[in-house]
Write a protein that binds this DNA or RNA. Sequence first.
DNA 1: CGCCAGGCTTCTA
DNA 2: TAGAAGCATGGC
Length: 249
Amino acid sequence: MESGQTFRFKSFNDGYQGVALGKEIFIKQEDDKIEISSSDSLAGADFNRYFSLDIDYKKIKKQLSLDPTLEEIVEFAPGIRVMRQPVFETLITFIISQNNNIPRISGIVERLCDNFGEDKGGYRDFPTAGVLSELSPEDLAPIRAGFRDKYIIDAAIKWTDGIVREEFLKTAPLDSARDMLMKIKGVGPKVADCVLLFSANRLETFPKDVWIKRAMESLFPDGLPECAREYAGIAQQYIFHYARNRQII
DNA sequence: CGCCAGGCTTCTA
DNA sequence: TAGAAGCATGGC
């Protein structure tokens, strides 16, 4: 929940609270048991898929751990999973993420939802592309996204116009999918890869941000180990978290 | 005050 | 085609 893939969850009691798939949920973990609860009906929302609880991470971690350095990195925070969030929401949140820090990303996303998301009775859903595509940069001023406001609007317009299509992103050759995303102003290789990894379930994509570049230089100067190729994106999340948190603890 | 943040666009050579 | 400047905002 704190690995920088998703930005609407807050620490709450002994778990996390946030809005996902149009529902306000509370999630907590005790040992291997993960519990999701809500005051809403969860009908129609597939949180096993959202949190990738249907994926065999024991098998994936075993394969990554064939490399001894990766084994240590995985063991540092073995509960991390790559989520499968809605594509449009992931696209917008990672446009906001550029040249930004995680706390401020969360703040901008929160204001975006508060101002333009559908009121579900006490909380707000993530805004639709249709709503965002009609806005001007001045309309977005309250969310204080800075220069990213025009990128958000361009992404929403290209989404509603069908220039960026979810099904294509999930099924087309990886390079074609990236090119489609990079037609959006403000979307470059890093944001495109994050969308493909965190929502389109393209586990072989390996987003390279400043943290990953620094971590790769010191941990894997010869590149990512061969055993991690199939699940490079999952390895990326373990490496990202390790790089950011290891020294501090 | 200056530097940096899950980068990208634009300008320059 | 590579490299640097500029970009909104906010925390430190």
